[in-house]
Design a protein around this nucleic acid. Structure first.
Lengths: 331, 331
DNA sequence: CTGTTAGCGCGTTCAT
DNA sequence: ATGAACGCGCTAACAG
């Protein structure tokens, strides 16, 4: 007979099996796989070998049942067509995994579905939830907080008791955009933004408009339905007389640039984006933009989460992600 | 007193609490939340009300302990910088959630980490695993199969007993690319491809080269380190004498186009990409490409998964995702 | 249709 | 340091 024994088909190997084979009690097996438990090196040795031979692995679900905690963290995300989301999700999940959490990813595009999906999470007693969705689940958040489940909102508006948030420094971003455009020689400014969906984008818009007033420049708000490539593309035809534009995100800015290019007037108008998605650096766009570092943002979010796991009763906190200008060709 | 009662801080409300408040047994509570269970409408009514008042929710983890199954499905993904991955992950997770699974997303970029991460999954007895990573976990897959965990590989090479796969129709893609370039008037062909990482990309390359021979055209293979934007950009300087290029993915093709543009020679050379990422349709690129529909691919993968969950012993299967040409400006 | 019993796989007292 | 007993939250099987 060669190779490790196979457990009987379909029957999972349990700590009992290991205990039996190692000639010890189940408690000994448990302790052998629990950090900082008191087991003699010899018993542990026996247990570990038996476990390996049987292909045994601790059932974390059962363990969690006793400890009253699972290592799961819900990640709610909407608008995955925006490349920035992909970066966000990558950073968040990597950060989570690094700290030994298991991210369960829940796409929630169509508003109502977010409720249903978050509701599901309660059944798995996740030890926390991260929300990057644009569509606010408002009331549901309170329910989580009430259930004692830490929840962190990323770039969202609602200030809810016991719900922490991390938001980008939109104020600085708006100012930076205005200053950069003006410095580049723009006189007639505009900002393209969806009035409905994204809270954080509206904040940037407001900061931008204020800054333009302060700099004594004309500024127009060009409303679109959604901050996406498509709508940026379409907005290109609404820019008569404008010579400097702030796009509230790069995704839309790429559309705008392509739209202007079709009209042959790309170079005559300065553009600043926001997010610094990979495409902004692609030389077809070479977009001057404001970086929102989603790696530090992920770090902040997860930090808030674990800190509230340790101390659930503390008052809600607001963390601000710093932004910075990335100078490229469009301004 | 108004509003729903709050459970004591920190103490989760259990089926026992509900049973007590509704004046029934715990079994009755259980049945009230189990589809197709036999409960009288009245008891269920009482139970549901009590549950609502207490904020009770069934603990699926405990339930899974009995049923010997969790609703979790592991999703291993690498190379999230490629926009195609983002689409893939979105489709996969949406599909999973629609069928009431909970996708746990595990980023696994650096080869070795994939092993560790997949190993973790065994502890949560997931009911299946989907792998889209470029780096093959080879031996580990067998371990999963042995443990009775269904596992489906997307666009990967290894044929392992009991491990199902879904791969894109790379043969058709290669032929299609060659035919399209030739039809567009190309005489000196080339294919840009990483020789190390992606199995599926190498298949496309081989099919392409064969098709070029069949069409009696010259063809060169231009090797790069990784099929990414950066390397596509760099490859632009290796194309002397070539007038038709097949990029094994769009991500790299975007880089190539930008690279050629810098040299001022974009229009003189025909290009076909693969995947049909959103950026391929962006008018800065307007890339003729071969669509690999990741929504149907996700559907295929999940189908394979559930079918093996129902019937674990069946022989491994191979499903092919159909591809189709999307004509745009570059060919 | 209902309540009672047993047990899923495991961690943790409490003795020894 | 080790084993026996109990319980985490829930459902399956069995009576009634």
């Amino acid at each position: 007979m060669n190779g490790p024994e196979k457990p009987a088909r379909g029957r999972k190997v349990t700590s009992f099996d290991v205990a039996q084979r190692a000639g010890v009690s189940r408690a000994a097996v448990s302790r052998s796989f629990t950090p900082n438990a008191s087991v003699s090196p010899e018993t542990r040795e026996k247990v570990v070998r038996a476990a390996k031979e049987l292909g045994y692995r601790v059932n974390y679900l059962a363990r969690g049942l006793i400890n009253r905690r699972s290592d799961f963290v819900g990640v709610i995300a909407a608008g995955m067509d925006n490349p920035y989301r992909a970066m966000q999700i990558e950073q968040i999940t990597k950060n989570l995994v690094r700290r030994n959490f298991k991210p369960i990813l829940l796409p929630a595009d169509h508003g109502e579905s977010a409720d249903h999906v978050m509701d599901q999470l309660l059944h798995y007693n996740v030890s926390g939830v991260l929300v990057t969705s644009d569509a606010p689940p408002t009331a549901l958040c309170a329910e989580f907080a009430a259930a004692g489940v830490p929840i962190v909102l990323i770039n969202k508006a609602d200030t809810i008791p016991s719900v922490d948030r991390v938001v980008s420094d939109n104020n600085a971003a708006g100012k930076l955009a205005a200053a950069t455009l003006v410095e580049a020689g723009a006189r007639k400014l505009a900002v393209i933004v969806s009035s409905a969906t994204s809270y954080t984008a509206r904040c940037r818009q407001q900061a931008f408009v204020s800054a333009c007033y302060a700099l004594q420049r004309d500024v127009r708000v060009i409303p679109v339905e959604y901050n996406s490539y498509r709508h940026g593309l379409a907005a290109a035809s609404c820019l008569d007389g404008v010579d400097g534009v702030f796009c509230v995100n790069d995704y839309m800015a790429c559309g705008l640039i392509d739209g202007l290019h079709r009209q042959g007037g790309r170079d005559s108008i300065r553009i600043v984006g926001h997010d610094d998605i990979p495409q902004a650096a692609w030389s077809a766009y070479d977009l001057t933009t404001i970086s929102q570092p989603c790696d530090v943002q992920a770090e902040q979010a997860v930090n808030l989460l674990v800190s509230r796991m340790d101390e659930p009763a503390q008052p809600e906190r607001l963390e601000v992600t710093p932004v910075s200008l990335v100078r490229r060709g469009t301004a």
